[in-house]
């Protein structure tokens, strides 16, 4: 299997606090990888390093053969990594459709990103250095906008939000807001999708649906997914491999069955919660 995303010995230090400590692992193409650990273990920090919000103190992030460590967030998104957030961060004042269309800026080529792709001998998106003026004069721009609306509607149909396209994002119930956030992430055409606690705040039935949904989008959009989740049913149900993080370091790695039996994991984290989940 091909590695699509490599985290090479990443350390992220904030002053005296080491949030991520020598994180070294990889995500394979098409894989559903889980990332679990107690609160404050550094899971979200790892996401922020991968997406370019933080530049790691040490280590490198390699995506599809490209060193993305020094790149800016929007460039990394253009290359094909997208994410959702632990606390929903939709554009609340915009409609459902607009939220998805905002994420389609990648369809307007970007010169910086093309330069990066070119340097690594990859296919560019054919950008023009005049894009800024094109944006003003909208030469050939309206067509693209229609294309985007069309694609946005198609995407909403796939995730089952089409009927709500013109609603304000803030008007959606919680579960659907989570779904919309995933749809928005998909609109950037990612190869790798990072989901940060997608089941948070969901009832058992909603999280059951979510599990199917995650598997389905993985297959429909050819994704590799890295998933942070506290809901053990969801993690054990969808992930093929799991990493356990504690105090910023990986303390265990393996298949769901193996993780459940690992005494270190049970001690650090799984213990009570997992017993409770099993009892249900």
């Amino acid at each position: 299997m091909n590695k699509i995303l490599e985290m090479n010995h990443i350390t992220m230090q904030f002053g005296g606090l080491i949030a991520v400590n020598n994180f070294h692992n990889q995500l394979y193409e098409g894989e559903l990888l889980g990332l679990i650990g107690p609160n404050g273990a550094g899971k979200t920090t790892a996401f922020n390093v991968i997406t370019g919000i933080y530049i790691p103190t040490k280590g490198k992030v390699i995506f599809d053969g490209i060193d993305i460590t020094p790149l800016r967030p929007h460039e990394i998104t253009h290359l094909g990594i997208s994410r959702t957030f632990q606390n929903i961060r939709l554009f609340q004042d915009m409609t459902v459709l607009e939220n998805v269309i905002v994420a389609q800026h990648h369809m307007l080529a970007n010169t910086d990103v093309d330069k990066i792709l070119k340097k690594h001998g990859k296919k560019t998106k054919g950008s023009s250095p005049l894009w800024f003026f094109k944006a003003l004069t909208k030469l050939g721009y309206l067509n693209k906008e229609k294309e985007m609306i069309k694609e946005g509607l198609l995407l909403l149909e796939k995730v089952g939000l089409l009927d709500l396209a013109e609603e304000k994002a803030s008007a959606l119930p919680y579960g659907l807001q989570r779904k919309l956030e995933i749809a928005r992430a998909l609109a950037t055409h990612p190869k790798v999708l990072l989901l940060d606690e997608p089941a948070a705040g969901m009832n058992p039935q909603e999280s059951e649906e979510l599990m199917h949904f995650i598997k389905q989008i993985r297959d429909d959009f050819n994704l590799s997914i890295l998933l942070i989740e506290h809901d053990m049913k969801v993690v054990m149900g969808v992930c093929e491999r799991i990493l356990v993080l504690d105090y910023g370091a990986i303390i265990a790695e393996g298949k769901p069955e193996e993780i459940q039996k690992n005494p270190r994991v049970i001690e650090a984290y799984l213990g009570e919660e997992w017993k409770n989940a099993k009892a249900e």
């Binding site: 997406t51 800016r72 994410r83 957030f85 554009f91 004042d93 905002v102 800026h105 970007n110 950037t188």
Partner: peptide, 12 residues
């Protein structure tokens, strides 16, 4: 409404 999230949508 949200600068960091917007940059993660691929917007410069």
């Amino acid at each position: 409404s949200d600068i960091p999230t917007t940059s993660l949508m691929g917007i410069n």
